[in-house]
């Protein structure tokens, strides 16, 4: 049986498992939307700053739930993977002819499906709330594609944390660290308007800024090739790095003779 067929079986399991955990779905959908609601009403005055790219903070803030939701989902994916290690399910899988790449892609499938669902819901909620989407209909598949790559990258991070620690608790404990990266980016303000030098420098080197800015470009300015290239590039870079590191970690975790 091919690795693709093995991956397909695990994709089915991963999706079923994800959809059957309502608590995880609440975290993945409700929290990003709640923070979106708070930010867009509480920080609306930021649009008064000279040079702010849009008159609607709602539209500006809508980019954040996409990235934030992916982080929540990555945490769930990591916790699920860790649970497989703790319960011995990974040992069960290790006794089959399954290969590591098929396992990794299968495990991450749930988070990709969730990422697409999140993107659709966040987009619909944004539209209903009156946020703009300058890129128009053609921008929707691009946004979905970017959401998928971001989900894979963050999912890889969750998987790496699970594989390195083998503990769901440790994965949950690492999660706040991931959030630090989110808040040290341009989620609340455009980088050009940050007056604190060290914060602007960190946000400039933080790849999360470029993920947010790529999504934001579709919402605010339409088609910004540079922003999209940087966003896709950073998302793909994170995905390649985390998946490569996860593959090595999985190889030692599944060290069969």
């Amino acid at each position: 049986m091919s690795g693709l067929a093995h991956a397909g079986l695990l994709v089915r399991r991963s999706v079923l498992r994800t959809l059957r955990q309502p608590a995880n779905l609440v975290f993945a959908f409700a929290f990003p939307l709640l923070l979106f609601a708070i930010n867009s009403s509480g920080l609306a005055a930021a649009t008064q700053l000279p040079g702010f790219p849009t008159g609607s903070y709602l539209t500006f803030a809508l980019a954040v739930p996409f990235v934030q939701g992916a982080l929540f989902a990555a945490n769930s994916a990591g916790a699920n993977f860790a649970e497989d290690i703790e319960t011995g399910f990974l040992s069960r899988l290790s006794l089959t002819p399954l290969r590591g790449p098929a396992l990794l892609s299968g495990q991450l499938a749930g988070i990709v499906v969730l990422g697409v669902m999140q993107a659709v819901v966040f987009l619909a909620v944004g539209a209903a709330a009156g946020a703009g989407f300058e890129a128009g209909i053609g921008g929707i598949p691009v946004l979905l594609a970017l959401s998928i790559v971001i989900s894979i990258g963050f999912g890889g991070l969750g998987a790496l944390a699970a594989l390195r620690t083998g503990s769901g608790e440790a994965v949950q404990g690492l999660f706040p660290l991931f959030f630090v990266f989110l808040f040290l980016s341009s989620v609340s303000l455009p980088r050009e308007l940050m007056e604190t030098d060290w914060f602007r420098t960190i946000a400039t080197y933080n790849p999360v800024s470029y993920l947010v800015e790529a999504i934001r470009s579709l919402l605010i300015s339409g088609w910004d090739a540079e922003a999209l290239a940087l966003g896709f590039g950073c998302a793909a870079g994170i995905a390649v790095l985390t998946l490569t590191a996860s593959s090595f970690a999985l190889r030692s975790r599944m060290a069969r003779t």
Partner: peptide
């Protein structure tokens, strides 16, 4: 069958069977 039944609490018994038999080809 190793120590502690290593099962996925979110899958049914039948789904476990399908997964395991599929992975074995």
């Amino acid at each position: 069958a190793l120590q502690e039944a290593a099962l996925d609490p979110y899958l049914t018994g039948r789904e476990h069977m399908r997964l395991q038999s599929g992975l074995h080809g």
